[in-house]
Design a protein around this nucleic acid. Structure first.
Length: 553
RNA sequence: GCGCCUGUAGCUCAGUUGGAUAGAGCAACUGCCUUCUAAGCAGUAGGUCAUGGGUUCGAAUCCCUUCAGGCGCGCCA
C-alpha cells in the first residue's frame, strides 16, 4: 500500500524535476489518515518541500497531482485538500487482490526484510539473582520479548541475552543471608547481616540445604563455607528466575555470567585495550577511565584504591564482549532508575570505536502495583514485595503481558491486580483474543453446516464484498504492514497492541451487523475469506506480543 | 544545585516522529441475545493537551519560562 503511493509520487516528481529545479528526489512520507474521509493514505510532501521550492504548497500539490494523474495506477481517486494534502484512495480491486495474496502467502506476507543480514542483540531483564523477579522485571521481560519477536520477524538475526550479576557483593550478601538463617535454624543464634535479604525465600533455601546437607556446616564460619552458600543460593535463585520467565512465556538465547568475564580474563583484557588507547589514567591511587572525553559528566573509576575492580570495570568488559561478537545494533532494556548510566556506557562503546547511535537503551519505567487502588509497598531488602510469579498466577500471563504492552515503556504504569483480575471480562487482551476465537468458531460452524463452505481462495469472487464495513475491515488489514514497519523502526511494540484493538473493534462491529454464513454461497465463501484474513493478522500480531491466540474462550 | 523522564476526558493511557475536526478503554447514562460465542454491538455525555511565551503554511508534538510529580547525580552494586 505504502510502496505503490511512494512509487507513484516519485515518478511524478521525476517529470517535474527540471521544472522545479530539483537535483534529488526528496524523502516521501506517507501516513494513514485518522478519518476515512481523507482517503486510504496521504502525503504532506507538498507542504514539506514548499519552502525549498519557494512556491505555495497548494500550487505544488496541484502540479504534482496533474503529473500523478498521467500514470496508470491502482487508484480510484485523488484529492487535494487543506493546505496541500494529497489524499489517495485505492480501487476496491486493489484490496481484493491484496486479500488474495494474504490468504495465499499467509504470515509470510506480513513480514518485512528491513533487518535482513543484520545482527541485533537485545539484553533484557538481567535482574540480580538475589531474589525472585518482581513486577518491574516482568514489564522489562514482556517488552524485551515482544521486541525480540518483532525484530526477528523483520528479518533481523536476533540474540536475546540475560546478564547475570553473579560476581559482586550482592550475591555474597545473599549467601551470607542464607548462611545466617541456616545457622539460626540449627540453633546457632548469630546476628543477621545488617543489609541482608529478608524475604521468605531465604528460609526456603536454608531449609533446602538442611535437608540436603544436614548440619554439615553448623558452627562453621562464613569464611570456611561461604562460597558454598553463595554459589548454592544464587544458582537456586537463577533457576527460579529462569522458571518464572519460562512460565511467563519468555526464553533467552544466552545467559552471560559476569563471573565468567573475570575468569576468562576479559576484564583485564578490556582494560588493557583501553590503556593502550590511552583512555586510562591513575589518580589518587585509583585507575580511572576518561569518559568525559566522550561526553560523560565525570571520569569513572575502574580500579579502586584498594585494588578491587568497580562494577563499572566488568561492565566495560561486558560491553566490549558484546562488540566482539559482531552486532550491527545493540539494544539494552534498563530500569529507568539506571538512566544516569547511559553516558558512561556510550563512552565505553565509543572508546571501542562502535558507531554512535547503534547502541540503544530502552528505559523501562517503574510499575506501581496496586490492590483495590491502593499502592502495595515494596521493599526488596525487607522482603516485602509481590513477585512476578504471584501476579502471573493471579491474573494470568497473557493479561499481564498485554497490559505491559499497552503503554510506552518509558511512561509510568499503574498495575492494579484486582482490576486486572476482577475486570478480566473487560480486559483488552480478551477483546482481541475473543475476535480470534469468534472467527475460529465461525469456521467450525461453517464446516459443520455446509461441507463445502470454506475459504476457497482459488474459486472465490471477492468482489461481492461490497459493504462499507467489509471494505473498512479489509483496508484495516493492509495497514498492518505499515504499523509493523513503524514498530520495527521505533522499537515500540505497543503500536501493535493498539492496532490489534482497532482491528478487533472493526471485526466485532462487523460480526454483529452481518452474518458470515448464509444461504448465499458465493457471499459466504467471500466472507469466510475475509474472516480468514482477519484471523491471520490477529494471530500474527498476538504472536509478536507473545500473547496466545486461543481457538475457544 | 545539575541532569533525565512525566504532566492529554472523572480514572488508566494512546496520539503514526510537525499534519486535517485531539482518540481508546474503564467508570456514568440509553438501547440490542429464538439466528455464526453478549468476554460482544449501537448510541449519549465527557477537553484551556499543566502554565506563559517563541519558531511556521500548521504545535499535544520542536525551543525557552514557570509550576507539579518521579528518578538519578559514590573509589556502592
Amino acid at each position: 500500500m505504502k510502496q505503490e503511493v511512494i512509487d507513484t509520487i516519485s515518478n511524478a516528481i521525476k517529470g517535474l524535476r527540471k521544472q522545479w529545479g530539483l537535483s534529488d528526489i526528496p524523502r516521501i512520507d506517507v501516513e494513514i489518515p485518522k478519518s476515512e474521509a481523507h482517503g486510504d493514505i496521504f502525503t504532506t510532501l507538498a507542504m514539506s518541500i514548499a519552502k525549498s521550492l519557494k512556491k505555495p504548497p497548494r500550487k505544488i500539490a496541484e502540479e504534482l497531482l496533474a503529473e500523478i494523474k498521467k500514470q496508470e495506477g491502482p487508484f480510484e481517486k485523488f484529492e487535494l485538500a487543506g493546505a496541500g494534502f494529497i489524499n489517495f484512495t485505492f480501487k476496491k480491486e486493489y484490496f481484493y487482490q491484496a486479500l488474495e495474496k494474504l490468504l495465499n502467502e499467509e504470515h509470510s506476507y506480513l513480514k518485512t526484510d528491513i533487518g535482513k543480514d543484520k545482527k541485533i542483540q537485545i539484553e533484557f531483564v538481567s535482574a540480580n539473582p538475589t531474589g525472585p523477579l518482581h513486577i518491574g522485571h516482568g514489564r522489562g521481560a514482556a517488552v524485551g520479548n515482544a521486541l525480540s519477536n518483532i525484530l526477528a520477524s523483520a528479518g533481523y538475526d536476533v540474540e536475546r541475552e540475560y546478564y547475570i550479576n553473579d560476581a559482586g557483593v550482592q550475591v555474597k550478601l545473599l549467601g551470607q543471608s542464607v548462611y545466617t538463617r541456616y545457622q539460626q535454624m540449627l540453633g546457632n543464634n548469630i546476628p543477621f547481616p545488617e543489609d541482608g535479604y529478608k524475604g521468605s525465600y531465604i528460609e526456603t533455601i536454608s531449609d533446602e540445604i538442611i535437608k540436603k546437607a544436614g548440619n554439615k556446616y553448623f558452627n562453621q564460619s562464613f569464611e570456611e563455607c561461604g562460597d558454598f552458600f553463595t554459589n548454592y543460593s544464587y544458582k537456586t535463585m537463577l533457576a527460579d528466575i529462569a522458571k518464572d520467565l519460562r512460565d511467563f512465556g519468555i526464553t533467552f538465547d544466552r545467559w552471560q555470567s559476569e563471573m565468567e568475564l573475570y575468569e576468562k580474563g576479559k576484564v583485564t583484557d578490556s582494560l588493557n585495550t583501553l590503556h593502550d588507547k590511552k583512555f586510562l589514567y591513575e589518580r589518587d591511587s585509583a585507575l580511572w577511565f576518561s569518559s568525559t572525553r566522550f561526553g560523560d559528566d565525570k571520569d569513572r573509576v575502574v580500579v579502586k584504591k584498594d585494588g578491587k575492580y568497580t562494577y563499572f570495570a566488568s561492565d566495560i568488559a561486558y560491553h566490549k564482549d558484546k562488540l566482539d561478537r559482531g552486532f550491527d545494533t545493540i539494544i539494552a532494556l534498563w530500569g529507568a532508575d539506571h538512566h544516569g548510566y547511559i553516558p558512561r556506557i556510550n563512552s565505553v562503546l565509543e572508546a571501542f570505536d562502535f558507531p554512535k547511535g547503534k547502541f540503544k537503551v530502552i528505559l523501562i519505567q517503574m510499575v506501581t502495583l496496586l490492590r483495590h487502588g491502593k499502592p502495595v509497598q515494596m521493599s526488596k531488602r525487607a522482603g516485602e514485595f509481590i513477585t512476578l510469579r504471584e501476579v502471573i498466577d493471579e491474573v494470568g500471563a497473557d493479561t499481564t503481558k498485554f497490559i505491559f504492552l499497552t503503554r510506552r515503556p518509558d511512561s509510568h504504569l499503574e498495575f492494579d491486580i484486582e482490576v486486572a483480575k476482577e475486570q478480566s471480562a473487560e480486559n483488552p487482551v480478551f477483546y482481541v483474543q475473543y475476535a480470534f476465537a469468534r472467527i475460529s468458531s465461525i469456521f467450525k460452524q461453517a464446516t459443520e453446516k455446509m461441507q463445502d463452505a470454506r475459504c476457497k481462495i482459488q474459486e472465490v469472487d471477492l468482489s461481492v464484498l461490497k459493504e462499507p464495513d467489509e471494505l473498512s475491515l479489509i483496508k484495516k488489514l493492509f495497514q498492518y504492514p505499515m504499523v509493523f514497519e513503524g514498530t520495527v523502526l521505533s522499537f515500540e511494540p505497543h503500536r501493535i497492541t493498539y492496532y490489534l484493538q482497532e482491528l478487533a473493534k472493526l471485526f466485532h462491529s462487523y460480526y454483529n451487523k452481518h452474518r458470515v454464513i448464509s444461504d448465499d454461497k458465493p457471499l459466504t465463501t467471500a466472507r469466510l475469506c475475509l474472516c480468514k484474513g482477519v484471523q491471520i493478522v490477529l494471530e500474527e500480531g498476538l504472536k509478536m506480543l507473545g500473547v496466545s491466540a486461543p481457538e475457544r474462550m
